[in-house]
Design a protein around this nucleic acid. Structure first.
Lengths: 227, 227
DNA sequence: TCTATCAAGATTGGATCCAATCGACAATCA
DNA sequence: TGATTGTCGATTGGATCCAATCTTGATAGA
């Protein structure tokens, strides 16, 4: 049977129609499962097992796995199969190095063009984060807050890259929160980031964002060192 | 028939054994063809045609196309097929924005740990570029020069991202060189970059690299504006 | 006891076949 | 005449089957 075998029937009934092809559906569900931690790093992904779980043949599964491989979410070895990429200290360091470079760049482009509606939405998201306790929701809100501030960068590929790495970082944050509880420091940094954005200070916002990511990187690094 | 139908037989005989699977082979050849411009942007990629050209079934072709899609080298539309991503001004701007952010970051990590052998190799590559006239070779040398300086960053995913976008940039550079001829300015910037690296000045190298990428971005932008 | 070899089962890679979808063009109706 | 519908060819999506490869465990030999 499958890990979330009980929910999969509902999932198919609910979400499958939203996708044009079975490949797209399988890919979306697997990515979600990996990013939320439902499929932990190191889990082997047997094609036949997944195909049975999704009630499709092995082929859409194979194509979905290929795409996940290109997103560095699974490791593919010829004739051995796919394994969920495990979250090592090295992987985390890479992720944060990339984000520390990309997110300030996105802000420099986006901040001067943000509308009041964008800024209000970002502020609302900070409020929601204060009230939210569920980790999965918190990660989602955090991502949406940051992406709202990057929305006007006008560089779709750049933003897609940021989004991808932001989502991957949720896997580390899960550890982080589990170890540290709620991160009040991050919330005050979010407020500072929003204030800079509202003031139209792109350079200041970029600096805060870089420091924000680097702080998170140090936290995770310390966590891995203790473990 | 296939675009490079005459060479494909030799290619199979020579390079196919170097790959464990047909999928990997097809993917490598297609990527090379796209990046070198042999397959220009907008070219539709029919699965059956490619399969016949590579003397395989449609399945490895499909898997290869999925991976190329995740690398933004082809656009995939359900039930319509794959098309080589065309090089627009927007795509180029994205590429350069990403590189302008990532390459300085790579240098800050790598420069302090470069060995004399690394630096000598980079210098040798500059010499080779002076002597080389073939555009394809020039792009390859340019890429190797930059990657040599990033080699000690110790962030494999970051470097892989840089490598991928550096390779994609060759498609724009092809236009650039075609329009402008050899770029002497870039060569002197390479020399300045190497000098900073030799002096152990990571920050200075990062600044030069960022300016280097931004200059290239402006050149390409101007080219697209004229066209 | 340790190592090497080999055979069987499991699992993936690749080929072929069928179904679903799209595009274009012709036919029909307002 | 113009819009709509329907049909056919082309092309992709998905299922099933076979081949190639890996893993595991048993067996033989030193």
């Amino acid at each position: 049977m499958l890990f979330w075998a009980m929910d999969i029937a509902d999932l198919i009934a609910r979400d499958r129609p939203r996708f044009r092809t079975a490949t797209a559906f399988v890919e979306a569900v697997l990515r979600e499962a990996i990013l939320t931690g439902a499929l932990p790093g190191g889990t082997p992904l047997r094609q036949e097992e997944l195909a049975a779980g999704f009630a499709v043949s092995r082929m859409p599964v194979r194509e979905a796995l290929r795409q996940l491989e290109a997103q560095a979410l699974v490791d593919f070895t010829p004739h051995k199969g796919a394994v969920v990429t495990d979250i090592s200290a090295g992987e985390a360091a890479d992720n944060y190095a990339i984000r520390a470079a990309l997110e300030p760049a996105a802000l420099r482009l986006s901040v001067p063009r943000l509308t009041n509606a964008d800024l209000d939405q970002a502020e609302a998201l900070i409020g929601e984060m204060d009230a939210e306790d569920d980790l999965a929701r918190l990660g989602e809100l955090n991502r949406r807050f940051h992406l709202t501030l990057y929305a006007r960068a006008g560089r779709p590929r750049l933003i897609a890259l940021v989004e991808q790495h932001l989502a991957a970082a949720d896997r580390y944050l899960r550890f982080h929160f589990a170890a540290l509880g709620r991160d009040h420091m991050a919330q005050s940094e979010h407020a500072a980031l929003l204030a800079a954005a509202r003031a139209g200070d792109a350079e200041g916002a970029a600096r805060i964002a870089q420091a924000h990511v680097e702080t998170a990187a140090r936290n995770i690094e310390a966590f891995f060192a203790r473990r």
